[in-house]
């Protein structure tokens, strides 16, 4: 088995009295794509936010290549560089053009030269079909384009792992495809990723492993085909039924 990139052990996350994540343990190996599915409010996004130390955790441990990830870590910015995150609402910086959005962190955080960072940014942009948008501002882009830029921005930092938090949830249906294709491409390149999504067909296509999260607990995990075709728990069956539609014929 390839090297472990991320280890989560007995993670507990509480907001006051409400336990959002309860005893979550998960290993992510190099090149592995984990898809997290589950009903709204089950703690999927919170899990990603904990991995990126945007949330403080109340129990357990998260390690990235052996290094503890915690909101209290002294070298938090250094750890976060290695964890790329793509948000549901893109969160590009509105005052910077596309190229500057992408090169800001490489130049200011990693102290890479502007030329080198820009060169890589343009190469990545052309891979997602947006090289001609390098000088545009975020407000001039469609949702799908913004999300592709956000993915490139995360990639340009050469992260060890990429986190996708419902990245197509705010998009029009036609734009969902272009973003998902980019993520599928990344999976083919062997990037390590954790993806939270409601796109079940995509989840099945991209995942090496599916995690079904419900009420803050991992209820089921395993091979995508097995999960989607033969879910073990009643809760997972019920959840998956919400994605299938049947017309009830009632002609007499």
């Amino acid at each position: 088995m390839s090297e472990k990139v991320l280890e989560i052990e007995h993670l507990v996350k509480r907001f006051d009295d409400l336990t959002v994540l309860n005893d979550i343990s998960l290993d992510v190996h190099e090149g592995e794509v984990i898809v997290v599915v589950g009903p709204s409010g089950c703690g999927k996004s919170t899990l990603l936010r904990c991995i990126n130390a945007l949330e403080e955790i109340q129990g357990g441990e998260i390690r990235l290549k052996g290094e503890a990830v915690s909101k209290k870590s002294r070298n938090l910015p250094e750890i976060r560089q290695k964890i790329g995150m793509v948000f549901q609402s893109y969160e590009l910086f509105p005052h910077l053009n596309v190229l500057d959005n992408i090169t800001l962190a490489p130049t200011k955080v990693q102290k890479r030269s502007r030329e080198e960072a820009a060169e890589e940014a343009l190469a990545l942009l052309s891979r997602v079909g947006l090289q001609e948008k390098a000088g545009s501002f975020p407000r001039q882009l469609s949702g799908g384009q913004k999300q592709r830029v956000a993915i490139v921005r995360a990639l340009c930092m050469h992260p060890e792992i990429l986190l996708f938090d419902e990245v197509t949830a705010a998009l029009d249906p036609e734009m969902v495809r272009e973003v998902l294709d980019v993520i599928l491409g990344l999976a083919e390149q062997g990037k390590t990723m954790i993806i939270v999504t409601h796109e079940m067909q995509f989840a099945r296509a991209v995942a090496d492993k599916v995690i079904f999260l419900d009420e803050g607990v991992i209820k089921e995990e395993g091979d995508p085909d097995q999960f989607f075709d033969h879910p073990k728990t009643e809760r997972a069956k019920e959840f998956l039924r919400t994605f299938t539609f049947e017309r009830k014929h009632s002609h007499s």
Partner: peptide
Amino acid sequence: VQYESAYSLGLSRWQTLRYV
């Protein structure tokens, strides 16, 4: 979430304020 977006790229608190 703009702060979070900057933090997740590895920007420090001061860099986040200064550039974002």
